[in-house]
Design a binder for these strands. Sequence first.
DNA 1: GGTAGACCTGGACGC
DNA 2: GCGTCCAGGTCTACC
Length: 342
Amino acid sequence: MPPAALTLPVPDDYVLARDVCSYGYFLLAPNLWSPHERRFITTLNTSRAAVTLTISQPPRHTRSAKPRSAGPITSARELLSTRGRPLHILPDRPLPPRDERLVRDQLTRMLNLTTTTRDLREFHRLDPRFKPLGRGRLFRSPSFFEDVIKTVTSCNVTWPGTISMNTRLCATLGRRSPTRRHAFPTPQALAAVAPARLRATCRVGYRDARLVDLATRFADGRVDVEWFENPSTPDADLRAALLDLPGVGPYAAHNILQLLGRYDHLPLDTESVRHARNVLSFKGTSRSLMKRIDAHFAPFAPHRFRSYWFELWNFYEARRGHSWTWDPATTGTTFTAAQLKP
DNA sequence: GGTAGACCTGGACGC
DNA sequence: GCGTCCAGGTCTACC
């Protein structure tokens, strides 16, 4: 018997194409956005095995709920035509009730479905530039663990290197689903690898011991995930705890904060400096530009990261087209500073 | 508190 | 095909 499809309700403003293709992690394994099919494919860990999900958002008036091959979205009207429509989810194996709950919980985190329409309205009131397309939700990973590891694999490396590390981590250490796609490694799987083997197989370089150390802390409970995910934990406490993690410095800590839904800190890196020089026409040393760009986005508090990020995103899209049209194998590998020099 | 240098990998480039 | 250079954030030692 073929596996039963699931339906996942979403907030009234939710648009799958726009909101999946809102942060670079949608281009990293085990995620795959297909611009031609207009569907998102990912592989998640459940209680014992992996499951691959094909997710689409059929517009109203579609007789069949099956994802259709319609080519990339070409207009804002077309993009927004699926707004608020429930997601259609096709798993590659039957899901017992417990696994179905795990899948729903992970997708809710990943697609940021708990962000409220009220929260987005507040952001758009502060920064109306992103109201017409309704931008504001940011894609993230199905777990805090995966967000932390992905962030560490994005430090001190060019974007193709980050893509390569995540692809190899999944292929080497991730569980395999029936359709032969691999989930992201669990903390236990990553903690069990010798650093030298991790370096050799996943090409993570000097990050080897740090990644295993991180995974071990998650696996043995020293990292209290519920505390990190708890909205009542103060930002300052979260930041301090993140900086205590191996491989996490100021940039990574601020990036993980935004992935936790805390948008008042900017992860400043060389990309920020490029943006300050090329787009905002600021002048000065890298150090002074970082201070200046931090101050520049102060009026958007507590949504500073959203304003900063979607401004950067607009810059990429002005050169490569809208993110939901990017082919993961070509455009998706070339959208950071070094590749976008005039 | 600030800074210099090491840490790895992969891509670009010159020969 | 080989060697060299460079980009990228964190960590440690040192002042």
